[in-house]
Design a protein around this nucleic acid. Structure first.
Lengths: 176, 176
DNA sequence: TGGCTCATGTAAGCCGTTACATGATTTT
DNA sequence: AAAATCATGTAACGGCTTACATGAGCCA
């Protein structure tokens, strides 16, 4: 039975404690989102599949329709998660960046347009870095790697923002 | 008529001169690949669509089946490309990194497994940085942004490799 | 001459996004 | 009471990857 990476991400998030689909989405958005985004459209169907496979199980039954329905990892599920981390060769990093694509082909448009692209790109990376920095406050003692990977994200976005600033300076003729 | 980003990438590559599907693939693999990968399965069908839309046109007819069939940009196509670069708000950077995903959830596996992951990740980023560095030799005078974006790629992968090295050192207890 | 590579394609399938639907529960 | 939000879902669609097919030249 082959699981997708997203399925494993869900297992991983459940490893920290029981969570509903809604909780998983929120946890993902505050942690793995910048290198592995997940949406509701995947989470809910996937939880059912995982439950059917015996890797997760419902914790009690929700009373109201608005009540969250937490799932928890089974021993089987936990074993599966560990095995996934330890075995197999992961796919290489994949980036899809429409911004870079436009920049790459921006030699024949006006300097203004090019600058506007760079500034938007820089603003975004700065915003993302700031968001991720705000996650530093969380308690990561139980999960040192969470912290390390978070720092990767902060560093990446900060570095990208700096790169933008550098190119901007060159284009406007000023020194860095 | 809505074009995908990949379609625009193809237009952009054709803007530098007539190319066949095969040529486009090669050019892409030597330039935009690390932030916008394209495969044959997209290129050939897309070229037909673009031709039907009048944005590209065949250059003559291929004689043998092995002969390449170059396409060239039409004025319409060139206009479309420029417009795409200059207008609209590009989607934010998207990263899919199975490696980071595993690292993120690697707190409960052996230190050896974790180290192995980091080393593999570092090796890959180093290799990618080296590959991209070899592209510096190309002539970029006509396209300064090609050069800038290439440097982004080199910088990104080099930085990532360094991050891996840093975490490795911490995990093995040595100083950086 | 048998096999390998080149170059162009097609078809199936998967993953993920988007849009929509639904009822309950707060909030105004 | 009306409106907004919460929480769970479903269905359709789209882009991309993968696998396969083909026929022509090249090489051993």
């Amino acid at each position: 039975m082959e699981l997708t990476n997203t399925a494993h991400a869900i297992l991983g998030l459940l490893d920290e404690g029981p969570r509903s689909g809604y909780d998983i989405k929120q946890a993902a958005d505050h942690s793995v989102r910048y290198f592995w985004a997940v949406g509701y459209g995947q989470i809910y169907p996937e939880l059912r599949k995982l439950a059917k496979a015996g890797l997760v199980e419902r914790e009690g039954v929700a009373r109201g329709a608005r009540e969250r329905q937490p799932y928890r990892l089974t021993t089987e599920g936990r074993k599966m998660l560990r095995a996934w981390v330890e075995t197999g060769i992961p796919a290489p990093t994949e980036i899809r960046d429409e911004m870079l694509l436009k920049l790459f082909f921006s030699d024949s448009v006006s300097a203004d347009s090019r600058l506007a692209l760079l500034r938007l790109m820089r603003a975004r990376h700065e915003a993302m870095a700031a968001t991720l920095r705000s996650f530093r406050a969380k308690d990561h003692k139980a999960h040192p790697m969470h912290m390390d990977v978070l720092e990767y994200g902060i560093g990446f976005h900060a570095w990208s923002a700096q790169w933008c600033a550098g190119v901007e300076s060159r284009l406007t003729g000023r020194n860095v």
